[in-house]
Design a protein around this nucleic acid. Structure first.
Lengths: 142, 142
DNA sequence: CTCCTATATGTGCATAATGCACTTATCATC
DNA sequence: GATGATAAGTGCATTATGCACATATAGGAG
């Protein structure tokens, strides 16, 4: 099941704005992107279990994300992680199908993921703060 | 007008990761950026109260953000918002000091902010999911 | 055998968000 | 008249990511 073209829900995103000289990616509020979340997601998946790129893409697709996972981005980060020593890889050819590169996370990679978790916690706190304040703004004003 | 040109804490951000051929912005995990949060924050602040750019920068600085607010980014978005009809502006010259552009949010701008809030809620849910799963990964494995 | 599809991995270019270095201008004060 | 805070901007660089394509293997349909 190729995830390539499945229409990522989205649609015109309910409340669209007025006369718009849109700058957002593909005209969606929020830009319709992972906001620098691909890295930590990949590290998480690799912490859970060693895997090759294609499998990671499939596992990511099950995350309940509302836009498709770009294979390009995944393969790109895997190679970068290897350069940085966060993963190691070796080719697997025994099984049927084209050769695949099996990635395993290293202790450094786990440390890096831990650092990412701290960042994500902060980011979540900021989001909570904005969301709470945003709801206040709508209760009062409007 | 409040000012306190407080120097946003910052520091060199201690924790650095292993042997690294860093690609992250300024070498920080997470990239040390707002992850597309500048727009909703500005909209929120403008929902709360009309203001000029410089004041918005100061108000943003009080958000507990761990990296400084770029004036460039703020002014840029304000102008873009105006192009898109999310805010209106007019010059204020009566007060002392250089002329300032007073921005007010429009109904379209409020609708846009509402759409952003929905995006942020999803983003927060995803973060919660990743964080929970990440903690599991560390409980079990490691 | 040939074409189609799924599995796998990749390259190259484009765009959007943002950082960073500088510039301009007003006014108050030393 | 230099300095510093207030205000608003320009121009270029970097980073993350999207998107269009390119390649290769293997199994099945015809």
């Amino acid at each position: 099941m190729c995830m390539q073209g499945q229409g990522h829900g989205q649609g015109p995103a309910g409340g669209h704005h007025g006369g718009c000289g849109c700058h957002e990616t593909r005209g969606e509020v929020g830009g319709g992107r992972y906001e620098n979340l691909v890295q930590p997601i990949l590290l998480l998946l690799l912490c859970e279990k060693s895997a090759h790129g294609y499998e990671l893409i499939e596992r990511m697709s099950g995350f309940g994300l509302d836009f498709p996972v770009e294979p390009t981005t995944v393969y790109r980060y895997l190679r970068r992680f290897e350069e940085q020593g966060f993963v190691t890889s070796h080719w697997e050819t025994q099984d049927a199908g084209p050769a695949r590169r099996l990635y395993e996370i290293t202790p450094e990679g786990k440390g890096y993921f831990k650092a990412w978790m701290a960042v994500l916690r902060k980011r979540k706190d900021l989001l909570d703060f904005i969301l709470a304040r945003g709801e206040d703004a709508f209760d009062l004003g409007k």
